[in-house]
């Protein structure tokens, strides 16, 4: 409580105290309405009989039971699990390896880093287009190798329902692994040289040095990489559209493409909303604890 004896310009004072919050409030209001309000709205729709347009007749859990009985959703979930885990593991392994190799006082390090990282600047649509034709059996890799004389060479993953999902992994890893490399490289550069010297004096080999001292200290980088990659995997949409269009058939359908097609082309808005809700839940399960811990550390 402030005791006021000389508050001459009460209006001025009020404005002065409220000004920072006033400046913040448009952004906050926008986010409250367009993020959290909309989340609630979509969540509500997932319990209604909405079809081509939102409708407000409540149907309980019907959309969710329907959702989990639809074959396409099952495929989408399986795909996101396969794609997500391969994407995360390969990106991390490749990123870590390249970071360690690049950390050996490499000449032209800056140049190499630039090459590894540029795919991150591209749109997934561009990446998808490039890989779509490169992997196309008719004109791409297969045709090229055959034209070189290996007539029986076959590489038709992108046309093969069982293998198409792995082409998504190839393109996605190509796009993101350089970025993961940069994250690990930053982590490596943050490690105290004295510790390494001490371990070397203790007689650790290079291999032991990395396995026992360096890599364990990269835990925060692993955490960040995991969170970023997992969240990108769940949200993946553009790349599938550009690379396979979800095909062949529905072989490379992911939750994001499923949601879009059920909501806007198949006019099953209720089911679409239910699938979006599940996507949100899984991302929240990863992001909320992460943001929480990052903000708490600050205090």
């Amino acid at each position: 409580m402030t005791i006021t004896t000389t508050r001459h310009r009460a209006g001025d004072d009020w404005l002065r105290n409220a000004l920072p919050k006033l400046v913040l409030s448009p952004s906050f209001a926008m986010v409250l309405i367009f993020v959290y309000g909309f989340i609630l709205f979509t969540f509500y729709l997932s319990f209604t009989d909405s079809r081509i347009l939102p409708s407000y007749g409540l149907v309980g859990w019907e959309n969710y039971t329907k959702l989990f009985s639809v074959r396409a959703w099952g495929i989408a979930v399986d795909n996101v699990l396969i794609f997500g885990s391969l994407y995360i593991v390969i990106c991390c392994a490749l990123g870590l390896m390249l970071a360690i190799l690049l950390d050996q006082q490499i000449r032209a390090e800056g140049f190499i880093r630039t090459i590894y990282l540029y795919p991150m600047a591209l749109s997934f649509i561009v990446t998808g287009t490039a890989w779509k034709w490169f992997l196309d059996p008719g004109i791409g890799l297969q045709a090229v190798v055959r034209s070189w004389g290996w007539e029986s060479f076959t590489f038709e993953w992108i046309k093969d329902s069982d293998m198409a999902i792995y082409t998504i992994v190839i393109a996605a890893v190509w796009q993101t692994s350089g970025f993961v490399m940069a994250m690990f490289l930053a982590g490596l550069r943050g490690i105290d040289n004295e510790v390494l010297k001490a371990a070397q004096i203790d007689g650790a080999s290079n291999w032991a040095l990395y396995r026992r001292i360096v890599i364990p200290q990269l835990r925060p980088a692993f955490m960040s990489a995991f969170v970023v990659l997992a969240h990108m995997a769940i949200k993946s949409y553009d790349l599938i559209i550009a690379l396979t269009g979800g095909g062949p058939g529905t072989a490379t359908e992911l939750p994001a493409t499923f949601m879009y097609s059920y909501t806007f082309t198949r006019n099953q808005m209720g089911i679409g909303a239910a699938s979006a809700t599940i996507m949100l839940m899984s991302i929240a399960a990863i992001m909320v604890p992460y943001i929480w811990s990052e903000l708490r550390e600050k205090k």
């Binding site: 952004s27 906050f28 986010v31 367009f34 991302i283």
Partner: peptide, 20 residues
């Protein structure tokens, strides 16, 4: 407030397509 702003960056935008 900041946490709410920040989480808004990471939501799957499928969640806001219909109302938007």
């Amino acid at each position: 407030v900041f946490g709410l702003l920040l989480f808004g960056c990471f939501i799957p935008f499928q969640m806001v397509l219909i109302p938007m």
